[in-house]
Amino acid sequence: MSKQEFALVGDIGGTNARFALVEPGSTNLQHIEVLPCADYDNLDGAVLDYLERCQVTDVSEASIAFACPVHNDIVKMTNNHWVFSKKEVQSKLGLTSFKCINDFTAMALGVPHIAADQLIQVGGLEAEDDRVMSARARLVIGPGTGLGVSGLVKTRANWVPLSTEGGHVSFAPTTDLEISVLKVLMERFDRVSVERILCGDGLVNLYQSLAQVTSRESKYHKPSEITDAALKGEDELAEQTLAMFCKIFGQVAGDAALTIGALGGVYVCGGIIPRFTDFFKSSGFREAFENKGRMRGYLESIPVFVVMEAYTGLLGAAEALANSEV
């Protein structure tokens, strides 16, 4: 295969590197592979191994998303050992174009390309036709390793991602129990942002804080243990924790939707919520999302979608290739 036939797209997290090939101007992902980051010294080694696996000699364009800051030439992964210079990698791989974008920017850019059967709607009005919806701002938000928050708006030519640090806004409790949890968390952190609760480690923070507030034993120390115990009905504290997690997420998502005017819908990404969609749909998320006093009517109309697509970041990286706004 010649390098004119394909461009390389990637989505690099702390554990895995996801790669695919796309034809110029397309977001149709081909030859998807997921490689463990621990198996490679750095990005260029992983890319070269992937291309060899695909029997592609080289590529001239690449767009890769990273779960870390990417605004400087030196990129240092937050949760794995990779550190590299963008200029050096571009030179080593012989790329004429190399776009490095943040992973949640890619997540946002991928949203317009998700198939309808990969979206689970949680409340709100039925989505209108694409032309109407695409003219309105969208909110892309999701708990995972952290809490990612991005906006998405459509110009005449391109989708434009609004990169934000919305996961670091202050936690605003709305009940006596949430106030008690906040007080416990304030003993550990100088400032309590919503990301201290709405992410994997945040779920553990919430579980331990609730245990302290209600004088109960804290049995679990991993997010997966808490989630599993809650879904199996094996631990009342775990169930209460997961329910409160969903409710607080609803409060935060509703605030963010108001802030950017997300009448085009809210898209829930990340690695946590898709693991328990039935629990999520029956939780207090939607009521908390809409419970904004005088603005309830505004929020009631906004559809929320849980994104089940496993490769949204790769779709976004593909979108970024020809997107002049990125």
Rank of each mutant, 00 (worst) to 15 (best):
M1N: 06
F6I: 04
A7V: 01
G10C: 09
D11G: 10
D11F: 11
I12W: 09
G14R: 09
A17Y: 07
F19C: 09
A20N: 04
P24T: 06
Q30V: 01
P36L: 04
L43M: 03
D44V: 11
D44H: 07
G45F: 08
L48G: 00
L48Y: 00
E52Q: 12
R53P: 00
T57H: 06
V59A: 04
S60P: 00
E61L: 07
E61T: 09
A62E: 04
A65P: 02
F66E: 02
V75C: 08
K76Q: 15
M77S: 05
W82F: 12
V83E: 15
S85T: 10
K87H: 12
K87G: 02
E88M: 11
V89I: 15
L93D: 12
L95V: 12
T96R: 15
C100M: 14
D103M: 11
D103Q: 10
D103K: 11
F104K: 07
T105N: 11
G110W: 12
H113L: 13
H113C: 04
A116Q: 15
D117S: 12
D117Y: 13
Q118P: 00
V122M: 06
G123L: 09
D129R: 08
D130Y: 02
D130P: 00
D130C: 01
D130L: 07
A135M: 13
A137D: 02
L139Q: 06
G144K: 03
G144W: 06
G148P: 05
L152V: 06
L152N: 01
V153M: 11
V153N: 02
V153F: 02
V153T: 13
T155Y: 01
A157P: 00
N158H: 14
V160Y: 09
P161Q: 08
S163Q: 12
E165I: 11
G166Q: 06
G166E: 06
P173E: 07
T174F: 00
L177R: 08
S180D: 14
V181G: 02
L182C: 01
L182H: 06
V184A: 01
L185C: 02
L185G: 02
M186L: 13
E187M: 02
R188W: 00
F189L: 01
D190M: 01
V192T: 04
V194W: 06
I197M: 04
L198P: 04
C199K: 06
C199V: 00
G202L: 05
G202D: 07
G202A: 05
V204A: 03
Y207T: 07
S209F: 06
L210I: 10
R216A: 10
K222E: 14
P223S: 12
I226N: 10
I226F: 09
T227L: 14
A229T: 10
A229F: 07
L231R: 08
D235P: 08
E239F: 03
Q240G: 15
Q240Y: 02
Q251R: 15
Q251C: 10
A256R: 14
A257L: 13
I260R: 08
A262Y: 12
A262V: 13
G264M: 14
V266K: 14
C269H: 08
C269I: 15
G270D: 14
R275E: 15
F279Y: 15
F280N: 10
S283I: 13
R286L: 15
R286Y: 15
R296G: 07
Y298C: 08
L299I: 12
V307W: 01
V307A: 10
A320K: 04
L321E: 03
A322K: 05
E325T: 11
